[in-house]
Design a protein around this nucleic acid. Structure first.
Lengths: 240, 240
DNA sequence: GCCCCGAAGATATGATCAAATTGCGCGCTG
DNA sequence: CAGCGCGCAATTTGATCATATCTTCGGGGC
């Protein structure tokens, strides 16, 4: 589906100030806007509940209204933004039942993706994941929240790409999008020190082609992450 | 998410020529366009592979380009339409691996929805489903393909609503959208006589609050439907 | 077989209209 | 007299359209 997804998103990770405009066959503006907003949501640059205005985005991104509108519609369909009924758009705040449903389906999908990736695993994959995991650890050790979120995302993304199941991968990405804003809050609350990281188990299981082992590790990874999110959400609830 | 989803879609089923324009707090045009296109795809009025042009829709729906563009972006994000890279949009043709992935996730989600609905089941629900199932049967007996597709959709939709899991329900609807165009082809090929209908088993299990029974029946329903789709797809493959 | 050109369609902008929110001033009540 | 709430108006924001520009595809000429 998302033709420019891979290239553009990775470019964003590497050089956020990329300004490729007049290059041949550049992605359309609405695609660029979509990718930028998507990255902002995925990596926690937007707070849960934050209002999103079309005109604000046309100003801050320097684009016309139509492309911005299209990007917002896509993100609403992704569940990354919420249409509030009175024509207003905002970043969703996850309720307890939201988290429960999202967790259920994340486990099913990501466990399956892990299983399939394990079956197609190659030494090259393990090596690449080890490299990314090292960056995750380094981001954690220096307390770089954005770096952690991006590299952790990249770890899972690369793994799932090997599953050779684009539809399931896309669904998984959509689910990650919904957790993005809350993850940033989690990091702000708990810091980067005791973040979930079942990557070592995954890599061990991957080396032996142990599909069920990888799958189990993923489920634990999901559970740990969700646990922190629910903890923070409960805290927020009692605050208000 | 979709505020007007329930009302507008049901209105569409009952009176397709509804023209509620100036009524107070009418849905925006882009929402109306989305619902109309969605219904067309869901109920098989669009063939797999069919090209979809913006200008064609602005003419046939009598709307401006901007709302049509927004609706198309949403449907692309839903997986109901496909962006072909060269600015062209079309109704997707399901490949074998597409069907396999979609089936996997449909079973997980719809089985869970059925399980949850069974736990919340009430006599009123059973009664309503019986009424709808009667309409399904009647549509089958008179060979009314559109009627069958709509009422069958309604049967599942009403059941899943009782699960009280809006996120899962929405995901299920998205998956149905992807099968819509192929279903029409299936009906055209096999007729409405031997269509899958595990509704009777579902109702029996529902009456006893047998969550696992309902869940099993749903999985069989999904499997049967998918089997016919794969059969037709294989046929198409060998044709071309 | 390759290249150029015309038509069809897609992208993007800015203007215009409508709706909703915000802030302010007034009157009412304690 | 001070605080509170209500309703109107100003402004912000969203929705839609008409138009201008650019791409892509297909046919005809070299």
């Amino acid at each position: 589906m998302d033709i420019w997804n891979g290239t553009t998103l990775l470019n964003l990770i590497k050089k956020p100030a990329a300004k490729a405009r007049k290059s041949p066959s550049a992605p359309p503006v609405h695609e660029q806007v979509y990718q930028k907003l998507r990255a902002q949501i995925l990596f926690g640059e937007m707070a849960p509940g934050q209002a999103v205005t079309i005109q604000g985005l046309t100003d801050s991104l320097g684009a016309g209204m139509t492309p911005v509108r299209e990007a917002i519609r896509r993100l609403i369909s992704d569940g990354a933004l919420m249409f509030q009924g009175n024509r207003r758009v905002s970043v969703p705040v996850l309720s307890a039942t939201d988290v429960e449903q999202l967790t259920f389906i994340r486990k099913k999908i990501e466990a399956e993706l892990a299983r399939r990736a394990a079956q197609h695993a190659s030494p090259a994959l393990v090596e690449e994941l080890e490299r990314i995991d090292a960056e995750v650890d380094s981001a954690i050790s220096i307390g770089d929240v954005s770096g952690y979120l991006m590299q952790n995302y990249r770890f899972h993304s690369v793994l799932y790409d090997y599953a050779d199941a684009p539809i399931l991968s896309e669904m998984a990405e959509r689910l990650w999008l919904r957790f993005g804003p809350s993850l940033r809050v989690v990091c702000g609350r708990f810091g980067t020190q005791n973040l979930p990281d079942r990557h070592k188990e995954m890599l061990t299981a991957l080396r032996r082609r142990d599909a069920e082992g990888v799958s189990r590790a993923i489920e634990q990874d999901v559970d740990q992450g969700v646990q922190m999110v629910t903890a923070v959400l409960a805290e927020r609830r009692s605050d208000s």
